[in-house]
């Protein structure tokens, strides 16, 4: 079995109840596994939520995590999306301080990563970029020298291409 650690995206269907996220997080945290990213929202069935989380572990550990998660009464299913053909996206909001000098560079980066300006007032603007995790990382690297005021990332959302 693969000993090498890599990112795995787990997609869970769970009961949409107050305690469930804590159970899922505790199952990982209690065994010393860090959750790298986390996304939760209700599905088409309001009683059921989808949790998409990513962890960086070797395959044997991922298998153990999957088995521990599926034991939880409130968890209906666990699948490792990294093993399937999957579309993955992440969204980022970045607030930039605008100066006469950086405006042109920012516009170029927005264009390159197909982002858009969500709001602009006076000397600040908020940019939205939705892309792959790698592109988001690159966009941040490019924006950093231009003065990032603050930012928020959603973490990865992912969906299988087909059933």
């Amino acid at each position: 079995m693969e000993k090498q650690k890599k990112e795995h995206i787990l997609s869970l269907l769970v009961n949409n109840k107050p305690d469930v996220l804590a159970r899922v997080a505790g199952t990982l945290g209690g065994r010393g596994y860090n959750i790298e990213t986390l996304c939760v929202d209700a599905t088409m069935d309001p009683g059921v939520s989808k949790i998409i989380l990513s962890v960086i572990q070797d395959q044997a550990t991922i298998t153990k995590i999957e088995k521990q998660l599926i034991r939880l009464i409130d968890v209906h299913s666990v699948s490792d999306l990294s093993k399937m053909e999957t579309v993955m996206r992440e969204m980022m909001l970045v607030r930039m301080k605008l100066t006469d000098k950086n405006k042109a560079d920012i516009a170029l980066i927005i264009d390159t990563f197909r982002g858009r300006v969500v709001t602009m007032n006076g000397d600040h603007c908020v940019i939205e970029i939705t892309s792959t995790k790698e592109d988001i990382d690159r966009a941040i690297e490019s924006l950093k020298p231009l003065g990032i005021d603050d930012m928020a990332r959603t973490g990865i959302v992912a969906l299988e291409r087909m059933k």
Binding site: D19, A22, R23, G26, G30, L72, I73, D74
Partner: peptide, 14 residues
């Protein structure tokens, strides 16, 4: 007690 016993019960309810 729900939070306290979460990791040491098979399941708990309030």
């Amino acid at each position: 007690i729900i939070g306290i016993t979460r990791p040491c019960t098979k399941h708990n309810f309030q």
